[in-house]
């Protein structure tokens, strides 16, 4: 039987009717039509469905919708503002880190979660944060670069960093 649940997505409160077996990904895409979050393997291996929940990158394909209540969820649609892209998004564009674009939202969300926790990540940290994602087109090379650049740019803008 369907139950009504309330989700906090990108700052909005959304009421949706779900079955227990619906994942957060199902609800985001099929009900809220937030189709920026992509669906691919469904078994935790590709990372395209990554969203940020309470500040952490998680896989929405392995999260039950009913267990997503009461958590703060950000999807790719929630990054940046009406006028300005998030620095990670901007950096991905500028550094050629986007090709087919299918994995891009998941990779960007993974990177965003990293920089929120760790504004000055090492090469190791960046690779680690992106390991759960999968990008056959760029071979992860320019995505790794783009995340590092976004971190530098953010540090520059925030003025908190003294470089490495």
């Amino acid at each position: 039987m369907k139950r009504m649940i309330t989700l906090q997505v990108n700052g909005d409160t959304c009421e949706v009717a779900v079955e227990p077996w619906h994942t957060l990904l199902d609800v985001l895409r099929d009900q809220l039509r937030l189709t920026g979050t992509k669906k691919s393997c469904g078994i935790g291996t590709c990372g395209v469905c990554t969203v940020i929940m309470d500040g952490l990158a998680i896989l929405s394909c392995l999260k039950l919708a009913i267990e997503s209540q009461g958590h703060d969820i950000t999807t790719i649609e929630g990054l940046g503002s009406a006028d300005e892209l998030d620095p990670v998004q901007q950096s991905f564009i500028e550094h050629g880190a986007i090709q087919c674009g299918f994995c891009t939202p998941g990779v960007i969300m993974s990177a965003r979660a990293l920089l929120d926790k760790n504004p000055q990540p090492s090469d190791e940290d960046v690779r680690e944060a992106l390991s759960g994602t999968f990008c056959r087109c760029t071979g992860h090379i320019k995505t790794i670069e783009a995340v590092k650049h976004a971190a530098e740019k953010q540090a520059g803008a925030g003025g908190t960093s003294d470089g490495q």
């Binding site: 895409r29 099929d30 039509r33 937030l34 189709t35 920026g36 979050t37 992509k38 669906k39 999807t75 790719i76 649609e77 990054l79 940046g80 892209l85 998004q89 901007q90 991905f92 564009i93 500028e94 050629g96 986007i98 090709q99 674009g101 299918f102 891009t104 939202p105 960007i108």
Partner: peptide, 23 residues
Amino acid sequence: QRHPRLDGRQKATGRSEFSDDVY
């Protein structure tokens, strides 16, 4: 010249539509 892809903003913001996004 080095040129970022023209659909970069669409793709980076999740706006690009793929076939599974067709409802």
